[in-house]
Measured scan of single mutants.
Amino acid sequence: VRLVQFQKNTDEPMGITLKMNELNHCIVARIMHGGMIHRQGTLHVGDEIREINGISVANQTVEQLQKMLREMRGSITFKIVP
């Protein structure tokens, strides 16, 4: 398990697509080339996201998580399992 932190201070999309796997874990499905996450190089396709800013992603839908990420500003921390 590791923590990945980055800054999001604009309306620029993060450039990641999330999916739920068969165990209902949140997985990074795709990283858009040239997007914020791609430029930082901190997340990778297949990484499992456990928490966003200390909030568990368990029992949340992809749509709920994407909305939460769109609305966040400032420092964002993901707890991930590579």
Score class of each variant (00 low, 15 high):
T77Q: 10
H25T: 07
V57D: 00
T61L: 03
L69A: 03
R39E: 09
M14A: 08
M14N: 03
L3Q: 14
E71I: 10
I37F: 07
Q64K: 12
P82V: 07
T61F: 02
P82C: 08
I55W: 08
T61K: 09
M20V: 10
I52M: 02
M36K: 07
M72W: 10
I52N: 05
M32N: 15
V28P: 00
E63I: 07
E12Y: 04
A29F: 03
Q64C: 13
P82A: 12
V1F: 11
M36A: 15
V81L: 13
I80P: 00
R30S: 13
L18M: 06
Q5T: 15
D47L: 00
R2L: 05
I80K: 01
N59A: 10
A29H: 12
T10F: 14
E48M: 05
R39N: 15
E22D: 15
M14F: 12
A29K: 09
R50H: 05
Q7I: 15
V4K: 04
V1G: 10
H38Y: 08
R50M: 13
R70G: 13
G15Q: 03
T61M: 04
L3I: 15
H33C: 11
V62W: 05
R50V: 13
R30E: 14
G74F: 02
H44I: 05
K19I: 07
T77M: 03
V62G: 08
I49L: 07
A29Q: 12
M14S: 05
E63Q: 12
N59M: 07
V4F: 07
V57M: 08
E12F: 04
L23T: 15
M36T: 13
G41A: 08
N9P: 10
T77P: 02
T17F: 08
A58K: 15
T61R: 07
F78Y: 02
G34W: 06
P13H: 09
V81G: 07
A58Y: 09
D11A: 11
M20L: 12
V57E: 00
V62M: 09
K19V: 13
M68P: 02
E12D: 07
Q64V: 09
I52T: 06
L18H: 01
G34T: 06
I49K: 01
A29I: 06
V4N: 02
I80G: 03
L18D: 00
T17R: 11
R39W: 02
E63F: 11
S75C: 12
M36L: 14
G41T: 11
I55T: 13
H38C: 06
V62Y: 05
H25Y: 07
Q64R: 09
R70W: 08
G15I: 01
V4C: 05
E22R: 13
V81Q: 13
M72N: 06
R73Y: 05
Q5L: 07
P82M: 04
P82N: 09
M20D: 02
L23Q: 15
Q5G: 13
Q7M: 12
R2Y: 13
Q40F: 07
T17D: 15
L43Q: 00
L3Y: 12
L65Q: 03
K8D: 03
F78G: 00
P82E: 09
Q66C: 09
G41N: 08
K8H: 06
E22P: 11
V62P: 11
K19A: 14
I49M: 04
R30T: 09
Q7C: 14
M14L: 13
I16E: 00
E63K: 10
I31A: 02
G15F: 03
G46N: 06
G41Y: 02
H33Q: 15
M68D: 15
N9H: 11
G54K: 07
D11G: 11
G46H: 02
G34Y: 02
M68S: 13
E48S: 08
G54C: 04
I37A: 14
Q40N: 13
N53K: 01
Q40P: 02
L23P: 08
Q40C: 08
H44N: 11
H33N: 12
C26I: 15
Q66T: 12
L69D: 01
K19D: 12
I49A: 01
K79Y: 03
H25M: 12
M20S: 05
G41Q: 06
V1I: 15
H38N: 06
I76V: 12
A29D: 08
T17W: 10
R39I: 04
Q60C: 12
Q5V: 15
V81P: 02
Q7W: 10
R73W: 06
N21H: 04
N9L: 14
T42I: 09
M20Y: 12
L23W: 13
R39M: 06
G35L: 04
I80Q: 00
I55P: 00
L65G: 01
G35R: 04
R2H: 09
G74N: 04
I37G: 04
S56Q: 09
G15A: 03
A58V: 11
E22F: 04
N59L: 07
R50P: 01
Q60H: 12
H38T: 03
M72P: 04
L65V: 14
Q60P: 00
M20P: 03
V4A: 05
G54V: 01
N24V: 01
G54I: 00
E22M: 08
P13E: 06
M20G: 02
L43D: 00
E63N: 10
H44A: 13
G54W: 02
T77S: 13
T77K: 10
A58W: 07
L3A: 06
E48Y: 04
L65E: 00
Q7P: 05
V45N: 04
T17E: 12
V4Y: 05
V1N: 15
L3F: 13
I49Y: 00
L69K: 00
M14C: 06
E63S: 11
F6T: 06
R39K: 13
I31F: 03
E12I: 07
F6K: 02
P13R: 05
V4H: 04
K8P: 04
K19R: 12
S75P: 13
R2S: 08
M68C: 11
M72D: 05
H44F: 06
S75G: 13
E63T: 07
K8I: 13
E63G: 11
N9M: 12
R50E: 08
H33E: 15
Q66S: 12
V28C: 04
R2I: 11
Q66F: 04
V4R: 04
S56Y: 06
M32I: 15
G41K: 07
K19L: 11
I16N: 02
I76T: 04
I27S: 05
V81W: 07
K79H: 13
D11K: 09
I31W: 01
M20W: 10
H25K: 12
V57A: 09
R70D: 15
P13A: 09
N59W: 05
N24K: 11
T17G: 11
N59H: 13
K19P: 00
V81I: 12
E12R: 06
V28L: 03
R50C: 15
N9D: 14
R30H: 15
N53L: 00
I16C: 06
T10C: 15
G54R: 05
T42Q: 13
N53V: 00
V28F: 00
K19Y: 12
S75V: 14
V45E: 09
